[in-house]
Design a protein around this nucleic acid. Structure first.
Ligand code: MN
Ligand code: MN
Ligand code: MN
Ligand code: MN
Lengths: 222, 222
DNA sequence: GCATCGTTTTAGCCTTGGCTAAAAATATCT
DNA sequence: AGATATTTTTAGCCAAGGCTAAAACGATGC
């Protein structure tokens, strides 16, 4: 049985591994808020358990076993996030820290019960894919909203879940997964946008637009 | 913030304190499944935090602060138990170990959300009282089923939650809180009973009857 | 009143997962 | 290449929460 720390390390390594093949000690330490030296020590333990492949000075990668545990924790995390929103009335900017704890207190049976109660969902409230029970996970598709031309029609697919304040802001504007929007105007000098969403015109800063990912429905001139 | 161990110790001390004023090191150790020496060490730490009053060789009692934490954990435990039954389809004999972990992963906000989703319940699935948010808890009333005379009509108030097998058995017989029953026959030699419950006659061993607590509705001759 | 017995504490050890400061390895720049 | 800067590891420390074995305490019995 992995510990809470083990689960959080593996989950974080997996996240950092997207894009870069090897994860550096310092990157992992910074993202976990833990001292570099402590991470070095932990990586040796994880390697000893066959959860990561670690060579001194060369960073880490997850083994198959490590990735399976990482995905199991991520699945529980995202099931809880959706459950908190749908069944307990939480707003999507308050669920991350709750799920961060609940994911470690979730048995196989509870995971299955959550999944069933939610109708075997494929996406969490932020639009991120929920890994399947047997460890498959869909790719995150969708282009950043910043990439859309004026006049484009698109559907929001996902909003990056890193910053609760950004989530609360986007949520108030109606920029949530499944929402349709149209790019009305682009301000090149600062990268901000005016979009039509939920029957209203909204201004989105570049900072917000960078964190919103969409599927293009139609590109037309404005 | 108390740790998981702290919460479990305080909860257990409170439980053992019912009936006996002071709780002995060995009783606590035995009930937690931890070595006596480890408990001695932990009690010193808890005393240092003002959570228990501890004098060497004299056992412990909870302080006001300690009792407040104990009741908070117990509240979360019982809210989760009820939630698992009502909203996640668990049976009442499988909820204890789940709640034993979830109780420690529950924020103030989550506690409140559970309470609301359940309609501010007063009893858990076993009929045990749920402490209020401000730390009040009702007494466990009700007489043991073994004490009822033949012909008595009663309503089940509570079933002792110590043994999952007993719970599963009682559940299958329909002996659950709120169920009405009538004592049809008493077998003095072994203390077992025949009762009418849920439209059927059921035999209850003394072992089961000892763990079922009822409110007497009417005592009449059979 | 003193020896014995069970309970409790002390002593010494362990693992987990943190920390800081210093040393070593790697990367970068001239 | 050599000097310097950055990254990573090592060394040594700590607190929490366990363990066993031995010593001390307190209750009991004679
Ligand atoms: Mn976590
Ligand atoms: Mn999410
Ligand atoms: Mn617990
Ligand atoms: Mn209960």
């Amino acid at each position: 049985m992995p510990t809470v720390s083990t689960e959080d390390y593996l989950k974080q390594i997996r996240k950092l591994q997207e894009g870069a093949a090897r994860v550096s000690t310092s990157a992992l330490a910074a993202s976990l808020g833990i001292a570099d030296a402590s991470v070095t020590a932990m990586l040796k333990k994880l390697a000893g358990q066959g959860l990561v492949s670690y060579q001194p000075y060369q960073g880490v990668t997850l083994t198959e076993k490590g990735e399976a545990f990482a995905l199991r924790t991520l699945r529980r995390h995202r099931l809880w996030e959706l459950f908190l929103v749908r069944h307990l009335g939480f707003s999507w900017d308050r669920i991350h820290e709750e799920a961060e704890r609940l994911e470690h207190a979730t048995s196989e049976a509870l995971e299955a019960a959550l999944d069933r109660a939610l109708g075997f969902p494929r996406l969490d409230p932020h639009g991120d894919p929920i890994p399947s029970h047997d460890g498959r996970i869909e790719e995150c598709t969708g282009a950043a909203l910043t990439a859309l031309p004026t006049g484009a029609l698109a559907r929001v697919r996902r909003v990056a879940d890193g910053d609760p304040e950004l989530l609360r802001h986007a949520g108030r504007l109606g920029v949530v997964p499944e929402a349709s929007l149209e790019v009305r105007e682009r301000f090149g000098f600062d990268g901000s946008l005016r979009v039509r969403v939920g029957g209203r015109d909204r201004f989105l800063s570049a900072e917000v637009a960078r964190h919103v990912f969409v599927d293009l429905l139609e590109a037309r001139d404005g």
